[in-house]
Amino acid sequence: MSQFLPNNQITLLRNGEEYFPALEAEIDHAEHEIHLQTYIFENDATGQKIAAALMRAAGRKVTVNLLLDGFGSKDFPASLLDALQAAGVNVLFFRPKISPWTLKRNRLRRLHRKVSVFDGHVAFVGGINIIDDFDVPKDKTSPRIDYAVRIEGPLLVPIMQHVHTLWARTAWSQLKPATINIHQLDQPATGDKLAAFVVRDNLRHRRDIENAYLAAIENAKSDIFIANAYFMPGRQFRKALMRAAKRGVRVRLLLQGRMEYFLMIATHAFYSMFLRAGIEIYEYHKSFMHSKVAVIDDDWVTVGSSNIDPFSLLLAREANVVVIDKGFAQTLKQDLEIVLAEGATPILWDDWSRGFVLKRLVSWVVYGFVRFVLGVIGQPKQ
C-alpha cells in the first residue's frame, strides 16, 4: 500500500475551467523538466493551447516529456505530433498497437492516469484529459464535471518516482532514450495536509486503489459520498457498501445519467440491490459527469483517474490521491452537493421496482457480457 506523507499543500481544481489555466501556467513557469501523462489529448482549442505551451517550454530548453495512451489518443493528428517533435517535445505513446479484433489482455491495459509534474516541485493528479470541457456529445451548453488536484510538498517524491519509471520503461520498450533531467527528489514541507499517491498497475500495485476505497468504506462511521463516471463495482466492493448502509452509514452514489457508451448500462444491474439496502442513487443528467472522486466521513477524500469498474480496477494504469483533511473534504463535498442539487435526479425504489423492466433486463445481459470478456482475458471474477 502507498504511504501517507504529511505537510503537503493540495488545491482542488474543478473542471477544465480551473485546471487548464493552472496547467498552462506551470508549463510556462517550468525551467528544467516537464512530464505530462494523459489518456486523451484532443486536437481542439484546449489541446492546441496546451500543445503550444509545451512547445514554448521546449523552446526555452526545458526537457518536455509527453506520454499519451495509444488508444485514448489514437486520433492524435500527425501534423500536431510533427510540430511538437520539431519544437523539441519528446512524445511517446503507451501501447501504440491497437487491435479492435482481439480481447488479449495487453491490448486492454491502457494508460488512463492523468498526471503531470513540473521541475519536481509541482504536480497535478486527477481525472481531466486534455480536452475541452464542452467537447461533449449532443448538448454542449453545460461543461463535463471532473476534478484534479494541484500538489506541492513531500508527496512529489513518490509521484516523481512513478512518473520517471513509467516514462523510462515506455521509452526503453520502444528503443528510445529516456530523457530525464531531475533526480533530486527531496521536497520541503509546504502545507498541512496528509496525503498518499495511490496507483494501479500490473506489477506491485494491482489492487491499491480498490483496497484504499475498501478500507475507507469499512471504517466509515457516518457518510459515504461517491461520484463516479463508470460505476460497475465487483462483489467485494458492493458488499462493503451494503454493509456500511446496514450499520447506519448514509451512502450516496452520484453516477453518470447520460449514456456515453453502451456498456455503461451494466451499472443498472446493481440498482435494485443497492436501493433495497438503503443506498441512495442519483444520476447526473445536466451534462456528462466524468468525476472519479469520493468523500467519506468528512475527512477522507480521493481524487483521481480511476473509475470503479473492472477496466480501471483490474486493467488500466490509474493514479489517485487520497487526502486526510477535514477542510479539503468539506470543499469537495460542498461542490458535489451543488452538482447533485443542480443536475442530478434521484432514483427511487418505487419507480425503479415497478418500471424500467427492459432496462433492468438489458443491464444484466450487458453485465454478463462484461463478465464473459473478463473471463476470456483471464481476470479474476468480481
Rank of each mutant, 00 (worst) to 15 (best):
Q37G: 06
I180T: 13
R14H: 07
R110F: 14
A227V: 11
E318A: 03
F93M: 08
D299G: 08
K74M: 14
A227N: 05
L214D: 12
I151Y: 13
F372R: 01
D309W: 09
N228S: 07
D297N: 10
Q184M: 09
S173D: 14
K104T: 14
E218H: 13
L348Q: 03
I281S: 05
D82F: 15
F288R: 00
L336V: 09
A216L: 09
F93T: 07
N15A: 15
I377D: 03
E33L: 00
G59A: 15
R144F: 10
V89N: 10
G257W: 06
R144E: 14
N90K: 05
K138S: 15
D208F: 14
Q3R: 06
P346D: 07
R247W: 15
S2V: 08
P143C: 09
K49N: 12
D186Q: 12
E18Y: 09
V301L: 03
I308F: 04
P188Q: 06
A277M: 02
G120Q: 04
P233E: 06
V149Q: 01
R14C: 09
D135Q: 04
Y367I: 01
G127N: 02
L54G: 08
E24Y: 01
L54Y: 05
L66W: 05
A51Y: 12
F288E: 00
I224M: 05
V136Q: 10
R14T: 12
V136E: 12
N65V: 14
N106S: 15
S312K: 00
E342T: 09
K74G: 04
M232G: 07
N181F: 09
F71T: 04
V365T: 07
Y19Q: 01
K381D: 12
K239L: 15
G120T: 08
G88H: 09
H285G: 12
R204W: 15
T141H: 11
A215V: 01
V125D: 10
N219V: 08
L203C: 07
P154I: 13
L332F: 01
R206Y: 06
V89E: 13
V62D: 03
A178W: 03
Q334N: 10
G59I: 03
H268M: 10
A329I: 04
R14P: 02
G368A: 11
L275Q: 05
H164V: 12
A269V: 10
K221I: 10
H121Y: 05
